[in-house]
Design a protein around this nucleic acid. Structure first.
Length: 560
RNA sequence: UGCGGAUUGGUGUAAUGGUAGCACGACUGACUCUGGCUCAGUUUGUUAGGGUUCAAAUCCUUAAUCCGCAGCCA
């Protein structure tokens, strides 16, 4: 079995395997419980991969359950987006799409049972008073004067709460546990509150809504969840989770296990901040390719495979940690290297005239689409007297080790000819505007019969045949590792990277790209991976830079 | 100062009393019609002190540091 091959288990897998072995459970059943109050981001994919991944690995099931017990924060708008993101990530909840709000009656009935068992009471204290009575981290709380109401009175009051006879905040239902508990969550937590709000699913049916701590364990129990996986901050709530499940008399009790959230440097994950970036137009929208949202990453050109692999590499533990954004980039490169077709695109064009090449001739070269996947076949690329090369691929006074084109220097045009620079023109600022060269007809296809070597091979496009394209160069959203570190009185937004987006409006790409469709991914030879943007149209191509190729030359050059 | 969690190279993560390993990064070198890929190699680590043991990242102990918790949010 695959479990046998995979010796190194994370702590959750160990728990699951023990449960399976000991017969505590016969099948693993997990759930992915997003609250529909925002877009999913890369941080959520960790929980998603673990929740769905554990079910997959052990042949069990994973439910999608929208945790929608708070009508004031949630919206249908997000439901569809979240479903789309989960499917895009490649996870399948089959027909098990649930909403916490679907269990409103059952949860309510449990609450009534709790009252009958003397485990819950209606409290008249207001928010302020409840806070005071709760005590502090170091001092115990004290009991509410309403704590010992009779069961009948509680029942009647709770019914009247449900019937809308009280206003928001007037009364709450509390679990009767222990006001002196060292764990604040056990100091008679509120389990139902009055909210006369419209709910995105249940409409105006309810004016009382259960709190997470009461609803979640019961939802898990109702769905037959075996392992309820969540993040570390819920660890303090576990005693309450267990209390609810136990007092409710659940036969096959679900258990909660916590793991550390995913943090990544050079970005932010909080919903509040992401929202602010969108609303104040620091980015174009939730799917801006610089955003760590799944829709943003998708538009940027990231693949679900690479994200899943990233999460796999990050691992599962209970330790707070910050993962390098570079690891994510590594994962995309690795995947795209194997799968993306290669094409030639010149980001910053510089015209080269090949003076000994016939004016009216066009040749076509056959080139392979992907050296990593020969089965991807070949395509033809036109060649003519005038071509564009990258501005960075020509230097008048190059440093040593510069293998590209330079005065009197020879370079190979990928898949075409050797050319030798014979001169160049500049404008009044000294900027090179045109390069003159001659080609060696004998080097057709990129090999010279006399066996002479050229160190540099550069990409190019035929000027006559090139397609215009807009290219959007994306970089890190923040210029510092931890955007939340800023001088006194400052703000995380001052850490925004001013160069996170550079638009190149007049790049040149090869004609094979004429009918590239939004979402198509390519490797622009020597430049990086690019994805056709949704703004792209035939005749007005737009490419997003997903990630650059590793650039050894940039490293050498920066060292001087 | 209460309760709960955590601490292994630059980063992330293994080793469950018996050779501190893997991945990313960095650095060499080889190869190359992508300064990509690939391949070979190098580098850096058990928070600290004490103890048990033939043997400790692992067990005991004392401390330090970091994170979370006082919503009618999830």
């Amino acid at each position: 079995m695959e479990e046998m091959e995979n010796k190194q288990l994370n702590f959750i897998e160990e728990i699951i395997e023990e449960d399976l072995k000991a017969g505590n459970v016969t099948e693993v059943h997990t759930r992915f419980p997003p609250e529909p109050n925002g877009y999913l981001h890369i941080g959520h994919t960790k929980a998603m991969c673990i929740d769905f991944g554990m079910a997959l690995k052990y042949g069990g099931k994973c439910n999608l359950r929208f945790d929608d017990t708070n009508p004031t924060k949630e919206d249908v708008e997000y439901v569809d987006a979240i479903i789309e993101d989960i499917r895009w990530m490649g996870f399948d909840f089959e027909d098990r799409l649930y909403y916490g709000s679907d269990y409103s009656d059952q949860i309510y009935n449990y609450a009534v049972e709790f009252i009958k068992k003397g485990l819950a009471y209606v409290d008249d204290l207001d928010v302020e008073q409840i806070r005071e009575y709760r005590g502090t981290l170091t001092e115990p709380g004290k009991e509410s004067p309403w704590r010992n109401r009779g069961i009948e009175e509680n029942l009647s009051l709770f019914t009247r709460m449900k019937n809308g006879e009280f206003e928001n905040g007037e009364k709450v239902l509390r679990a009767k546990i222990d006001m002196a508990s060292p764990n604040i969550n056990m100091r008679d937590p509120v389990i139902y509150r009055i909210k006369k709000e419209h709910h995105h699913r249940t409409g105006d049916t309810w004016c009382i809504y259960p709190m997470y701590d009461f609803a979640h364990p019961l939802q898990d129990a109702i769905e037959g969840i075996t392992h309820s996986l969540c993040s570390i901050e819920y660890a303090d709530h576990r005693p309450l989770y267990d209390w609810v499940v136990q007092k409710a008399g659940i036969k096959n009790q679900p258990h909660q296990y916590e793991f550390a959230r995913l943090n990544i440097n050079y970005t932010v994950m909080s919903k509040r901040k992401l929202r602010e970036l969108v609303e104040k137009n620091y980015v174009s929208d939730w799917d801006d390719p610089r955003m760590p949202t799944l829709c943003g990453l998708r538009r940027r050109g990231f693949t679900p495979e690479s994200i899943r692999n990233f999460i796999e590499l990050v691992g599962v533990s209970r330790t707070n940690s910050v993962v390098d954004w570079g690891l994510l980039e590594h994962c995309v490169r690795e995947h795209l290297n194997k799968t993306a077709d290669r094409v030639m695109g010149v980001l910053n064009p510089l015209k080269v005239v090949i003076e000994n090449y016939p004016d009216d001739l066009t040749e076509e070269f056959t080139v392979e689409n992907n050296p990593e996947m020969p089965e991807r076949g070949t395509r033809t690329v036109p060649f003519s007297r005038e071509i564009y090369i990258e501005q960075d691929d020509f230097m008048v006074n190059p440093p040593s080790k510069y293998f590209r084109l330079k005065p009197d220097g020879e370079v190979r045009l990928k898949n075409a000819y050797f050319i030798k620079c014979t001169g160049f023109e500049t404008d009044e600022t000294g900027k090179v505007t045109l390069v003159k060269a001659v080609y060696d007809p004998a080097s057709r296809g990129g090999e010279s019969p006399d066996g002479r070597k050229v160190r540099g091979t550069i990409h190019w496009v035929s000027a006559k045949h090139a397609l215009d394209a807009e290219i959007r160069l994306y970089d890190l959203l923040f210029k510092v590792e931890n955007p939340d570190e800023f001088p006194e009185g400052g703000d995380y937004k001052q850490n925004l990277n001013p160069d996170s987006l550079i638009v190149l409006p007049s790049s040149k790409v090869e004609p094979a790209l004429a009918d590239a469709k939004p979402g198509d991914r390519f490797q622009f030879l020597r430049m990086g991976y690019f994805c056709v943007d949704k703004d792209s149209k035939p005749g007005a191509l737009v490419f997003n830079k997903t990630v650059g190729l590793k650039d050894t030359w940039a490293k050498i050059a920066s060292k001087g």
